[in-house]
Design a protein around this nucleic acid. Structure first.
Lengths: 346, 346
DNA sequence: CTGTTAGCGCCTTCAA
DNA sequence: TTGAAGGCGCTAACAG
């Protein structure tokens, strides 16, 4: 009674007294079959709790209905929100999503692409900024290129310069510049920036946009005004403590964290040090992840349409590459001034 | 020059001038092969950018290295944290994770299990509370049972009573009781509760634990002290507004939201209504998702070892069922009193 | 140690 | 409309 571990199409066919081909046809609705046969097959399949073997289907040339999504960290609200958008579109199109978290390890990222390639995933989505690293780019391209030649679709969120792939690009530079302009408009003149690792393109772009705009207003952002730390809440917290330790007296009037997640850590660090926001110092972030509007004070930030970033990327992959050159969808951010920023008193 | 879309093992073998089997052996390290042949094969594989076809491998009896994880909402920090734990263990064991979000649709949940079954996933993990619904249970069991008979592993986080599967069970009831005791200990006597849908086992358990403990202290939690809403930030926000609209004057001294996410919405609603926390009213949540310690005031809650919940569930699945009866791993929560609760003034 | 061969479960022509 | 048969790419005996 525990003969075969899996019920196969053949079992169904036999049980329904029809040929393999007929069973296949009714189960896939792929061709018309006489009503009574159809009936028998369906009944048999239900009776046996038949589930088709997706591997066999894929091997036999059926379609591949799974897409791979690779991001740095699933539990980061930024990625989670984007992943949500991806999943919505994927689900609407009957696609299954495989979500992989690389924990920011470039090698693991390449390894995942390799596995997804093996799975013959219909598409691979790269979410989050690339590593600005020649060797990494080369390794990544070496996986991606044959994958695409084999008919795989690839799309990315955020800039992946070296890789020539379809991209949904949030306007990091422009958004940061707008934010800088708004903050300068409030009267701020002394800034500090909490930045993530400089290898990440997102960090580079936001930093460039911010400091560029400051420069346009005659404000110089010096190298020691930029505090580099891990791209996380703890990174923001730690960098802020470092900042405070260094210059209790000549504090900047405004602190810009390149991501909201870092800003959250910064807010807690400031609170612990007895500094009030925005009374003693203003704080701004970037991304507008869902929770920051619920903070007290609510965080000033640059709103990115996070879910849409994911949706558009999935769209690009589904539509498939038409022309030869990579497409780029640009999505702009919008400065949202909330209570964490105010006119400086000093 | 664009002959076959995919490079196959056979291509590699031919190019290396060896047999299919030999090529397979070196690529899988499955048996020893003469050094020079091994060399030739590896070189050919690299040269052709060969990627094995995972479907063919699976079909041919190779192992299935992917596990499916089903949760309600990927972008909910609670699930994201648990998923993080799952992925860590999965990655350490060379497993790929397919993460599916059901958006709380029971049918979609069943559908995903069906697909995962088709994929011959090595394991299926159900994260989050079950629907207390006979029909749903039946449909789920109908998918799961044949899956397990075929050798599939199943494990869950949170109570799934009807399904007899291995479970990692956070102590919702006990945690809520402990929390109630602590709040009563602070001097609170009038409570209101923000609850999610009563169909979810988690809601039922936490509610039972909380009101049970209150009762033990002679405090009755009446039906109209419980505000049911969506299991989300917006649900908490909306329910709080509803509560406030109903009884501006005889406010409870303490508000318990059955999840932190709902508590976050509640805090914002209270703030908007000009009520201070904990001055005018205390607020407590449940889960201790990462962000709540960074709120101002930091949220009192019941800390659940979220990542561990995921890790243990993955462990259960990997270890495989040994005995015949489902295993249950109980993980207890710990009350964490923070600034959002204080002694009542009234 | 290496090569040959028989499936794994399904889809899809090709005949009947 | 239905059935028979040939792969899809790979692994795992089984011979050499």
């Amino acid at each position: 009674m525990k003969a075969r571990p899996h019920v196969t199409l053949e079992d169904v066919a036999r049980s329904a007294n029809v040929s393999l081909a007929t069973a296949s046809r009714v189960l896939n609705g792929t061709a018309s079959v006489r009503a009574d046969l159809r009936e028998r097959v369906s009944a048999a399949a239900a009776e046996l709790a038949y589930a088709p073997n997706a591997h066999a289907q894929a091997l036999a040339g059926g379609t591949h209905r799974t897409v791979g999504v690779i991001c740095h960290d699933v539990s980061d609200p930024y990625f989670a929100a984007i992943a949500g958008g991806v999943m919505r579109v994927a689900t609407d199109n009957g696609l299954l999503v495989m979500l992989a978290g690389t924990f920011r390890d470039p090698d693991r990222e390449v390894a995942y692409v390799s596995t997804l390639r093996a799975q013959r995933a219909a598409a691979i989505l790269l979410i989050g900024s690339a590593f600005e690293d020649r060797a990494w780019e080369r390794a990544m391209a070496a996986e991606l290129e044959p994958y695409r030649r084999g008919g795989g679709q690839v799309a990315a969120v955020s800039r992946h310069r070296g890789l020539k792939i379809d991209t949904v690009q949030p306007d990091n530079k422009g958004g940061a510049a707008e934010l800088a302009k708004a903050l300068v408009g409030l009267g701020h003149k002394r800034f500090a920036v909490l930045a993530g690792p400089r290898r990440l393109s997102t960090v580079i772009d936001r930093l460039a946009g911010f400091s560029g705009e400051l420069a346009a207003h005659g404000i110089e952002l010096r190298e020691d005004d930029v505090f580099e730390a891990a791209f996380s809440r703890d990174g923001g917290y730690e960098a802020t403590k470092r900042l405070l330790a260094g210059r209790k007296r000549k504090l900047p009037t405004c602190l810009f964290a390149v991501t909201d997640v870092m800003a959250i850590g910064a807010l807690t660090a400031l609170r612990e040090e007895g500094l009030s926001v925005p009374g003693d110092i203003s704080v701004a972030g970037f991304d507008d992840i869902p929770v920051v509007r619920d903070l007290a004070p609510a965080l000033t930030t640059v709103r990115l349409p996070l879910e849409e970033l994911g949706e558009r990327a999935m769209d690009l992959a589904i539509k498939g590459a038409t022309g030869s050159r990579p497409r780029t969808v640009r999505l702009s951010g919008e400065v949202v001034l909330r209570e964490s920023t105010a006119r400086p008193k000093r």
